[in-house]
Simulated assay, not measured.
Amino acid sequence: MKKLLMTLAVASLLISCNKEDSTSVNESSNQTASLAGHRGCYSHEHLEEQLKADPTLAQRMNDIEVHTAKTAAAIETGRIVNGVLEIPVVVNVLYRTTAENISQAQIQSQIDVLNKDFNAQNSDYNTANNPYSSVRANVGIRFVLDAVYRKSTTKTSWGTNDAMKKSTQGGLNPTSPTTKLNLWVCTIGGGILGYAQFPGGSSATDGVVIDSKYFGTTGTATYPFNLGRTATHEVGHWMNLRHIWGDATCGSDLVSDTPVHNAANYGVPAVGHRSTCTGTPLEMYMNYMDYTDDRGMYMFSNGQKSRMLAIFQVGGSRASFR
């Protein structure tokens, strides 16, 4: 198991989702993913772009790490219902085609998945032969659909430069981003399933973007990413979780109870799959923060739970949600 790492050089460790072929993609590059069928997420690259654009972001994120390390994993007061933190969710749908204008049922199916995955109610939570069942977490966060906004556009794809979040660029501005989780559903392009903004970024672009083909469990949801786990993964980033391999060979995700991974896993790894890192630890490939297919991921760890809940505490980066 890894020890929790803290460093002032947080910018060098900050993560998110890599795209399918590990090549940077943006709206102008027209690059496409080469590994069809692999999970593609752009949070890490997006963060690196934000760090370059805003020299103060690295310090804000380091402050978040310091607070996270000091904070006990408990939510004391605030928007709590039966001991569970409730987060209002605003869904912003940007569509060119009828298929992209996803149904209310598809939207609700995604909210349902988030609620199951973050409350240990997913049907695969008790999967047999899970070697990490002792550290499985019930995070205890409930998501409540607050509003759905729809906008017809002429764009065939939106890229990863946050245009979908800006009305001046044809998108939809976030609604109350300091108290509501905004999700944008659109065609991203470039093989990207979704990307999130980490805590510490601008509220004007805060939230999660998910391609309409990988949102929810019905309608346009496309195998092998048709179980709503792209949103679970991205919301994990929005709550300050790193990729389980730390976005580096044998890197750290800053969580104490997850094993070191040498790289991302794809598909559904065989039971007993081990890392090539020192000690050849058994990998937690069933974790939501890996890159497996939707059917291959089904748990957060207790350490990840502590890290997520810390940002909602007094003094935390998302304390305004309490």
Rank of each mutant, 00 (worst) to 15 (best):
G200R: 08
A137L: 10
M308W: 03
E86D: 02
L241Q: 00
D21T: 07
D257F: 03
A9L: 14
R242A: 10
V148T: 13
A204T: 10
R229M: 09
T249Y: 15
L94T: 07
A204P: 00
P259E: 01
P281Q: 02
S256V: 09
G236I: 00
V314F: 11
K3M: 13
H38G: 00
G236A: 04
T32K: 10
T153L: 15
V260H: 00
N82A: 15
K305G: 00
V91P: 01
L114V: 08
R142Y: 11
N119D: 13
T218P: 07
T175V: 15
G315Y: 12
K52G: 10
C17L: 05
E48N: 10
G207P: 03
S34H: 07
I15T: 04
I141A: 02
S152V: 15
K151W: 13
V148N: 09
T258V: 14
M1L: 13
N18A: 14
Y95N: 14
T278I: 11
R295T: 12
Y132K: 11
V135M: 07
L193G: 08
V66R: 09
A69L: 06
D293L: 08
G315Q: 08
A264G: 14
P281C: 12
V93C: 12
S28Q: 12
N18K: 12
A231G: 06
K305Q: 04
T56A: 10
T258P: 05
S152Y: 15
G200I: 00
C186I: 07
W245N: 14
D162K: 04
V260M: 13
V271A: 15
D63M: 12
K155S: 15
S134H: 01
K180S: 04
C250F: 01
Q169D: 14
E283T: 13
R318N: 05
Y132F: 15
E49S: 11
L47E: 06
K155H: 15
N30A: 14
S301L: 08
S157K: 06
G296V: 03
S134Y: 06
V255G: 00
F225E: 02
A11P: 03
D21P: 01
C186G: 02
V314Q: 09
G201R: 02
S306W: 02
S157W: 09
S22M: 14
L227D: 01
L227K: 12
H237E: 04
I192W: 07
L4N: 07
V91T: 08
A221D: 08
E20R: 06
L85M: 11
G189F: 04
I80K: 01
T280G: 03
G190I: 06
L309K: 01
A105M: 11
E234M: 05
